[in-house]
């Protein structure tokens, strides 16, 4: 029941997104621009572009995530559609999981486009390890979309949603960002898989902790 409702809500969100693709195109465009900013801002004489690779990837992924997250509840603000959902005998927890899932899918889709672009711009050799980077990205995205979903539901209740969300969310992005960037560096340096485990475990721990807490607190945010 909970899962079913969550899926219905996520499917509705993704269908709407599919129809005009605003969040997706904006986030991808944004990702490309940030990539270019990093390339042009770096000192080519002293720093190899390739060495910057992992750092830039995570700057791009976290910033483009911020761009996509506001969408979830801005969409519900139009015609106060959120009230329509709350009028149904649906638990707020199911709503959280639905929104989180839609956010995660969207962030992952943006990553699927951004990562190959990053490889091209930063001359990252294609190899099986790239799938490892993808897995790390998925693990990180699953985590930071949890506080992201919770905070975007709060931020849209103000007139400054687009400004408030980054300010609220960035401190929460730093731990998973750091873990993921470290894991990426090790993957690209061909470090033995064993050395990755520590970072992956930390990412998983963050995911579990914040998904559980955000899902528990979400009903308090929906309560008007």
């Amino acid at each position: 029941m909970l899962l079913g409702t969550a899926l219905v809500i996520a499917a509705k969100d993704l269908r709407i997104e599919w129809r005009h693709r605003t969040a997706f195109t904006t986030a991808v465009l944004f990702a490309v621009l940030v990539l270019l900013v990093a390339v042009f801002a770096h000192d080519g004489a002293t720093i190899q572009l390739r060495d910057l690779g992992p750092s830039v990837l995570w700057v791009v992924l976290s910033l483009s995530t911020l761009v996509t997250l506001n969408r979830a509840f801005l969409l519900e603000r139009e015609n106060r559609a959120l009230d329509g959902i709350l009028m149904a005998p649906v638990s707020a927890t199911a709503l959280f999981w639905g929104k989180w899932l839609a956010n995660l899918v969207l962030v992952v889709v943006v990553m699927v486009v951004a990562i190959p672009l990053w490889m091209i711009f930063f001359n990252i050799e294609p190899s099986l390890r790239i799938f490892g980077v993808g897995a790390v990205a998925l693990l990180a995205a699953a985590g930071f979309t949890a506080p992201g979903t919770l905070f975007s539901a709060m931020a849209v209740r103000t007139r400054f949603a687009e400004l408030l969300l980054p300010v609220l969310l960035l401190p929460f992005l730093i731990p998973p960002l750091f873990f993921a960037a470290q894991a990426t560096t090790q993957l690209l340096a061909d470090a033995p898989i064993g050395e990755l485990w520590g970072w992956l475990r930390l990412l998983a721990l963050y995911d579990i902790a914040f998904l559980a807490l955000a899902a528990m607190l979400f009903p308090a945010v929906m309560d008007q």
Binding site: K12, I16, R19, N79, R80, A81, D83, G84, A88
Partner: peptide, 17 residues
Amino acid sequence: RGAIGFLSHQSFLYDDL
């Protein structure tokens, strides 16, 4: 709330659906 139907000033509709 499931026993209540509510129509506010706002339509609760998704314009893109």
